[in-house]
């Protein structure tokens, strides 16, 4: 099922399908390894509910929900 990364629950894993956004933000996401095909696991939410922490390519990355919303992931049902 296709979802946005910010819609994933803590503990859910998915494969990145598409990265939206534009300019530097998008470039940054690519550079940090957020590219189509990468497997991403949502680790936790910050105490105030945002940003989120994910694991991908063997390390921990934090990004906000608005940014996670730009990333489409395929989640196994």
């Amino acid at each position: 099922m296709l979802k946005r990364l910010d819609e994933l629950k803590v503990g859910e894993t998915g494969q990145i399908k598409k990265v939206g956004g534009e300019g530097r933000l998008r470039r940054r996401l690519f550079d940090m390894g957020v590219t189509p095909g990468a497997i991403v696991n949502v680790r936790k939410l910050a105490p105030l509910g945002d940003p989120i922490e994910v694991t991908l390519r063997g390390y921990e990355l934090t990004l906000r929900k608005v940014e996670a919303n730009l990333i489409e992931v395929e989640v196994e049902d």
Binding site: T13, I39, N41, K44, L45, A46, L56, G58
Partner: peptide, 26 residues
């Protein structure tokens, strides 16, 4: 497990669970 993107539960993760806890973090 790692291949699926979920990492093993290292000491670092355990510490992090406490320090960035939803309620206790702040």
């Amino acid at each position: 497990e790692e291949a699926k993107g979920t990492k093993k539960n290292t000491t670092s993760d355990k510490i992090d669970k406490v320090l960035t806890h939803r309620f206790w973090g702040i």
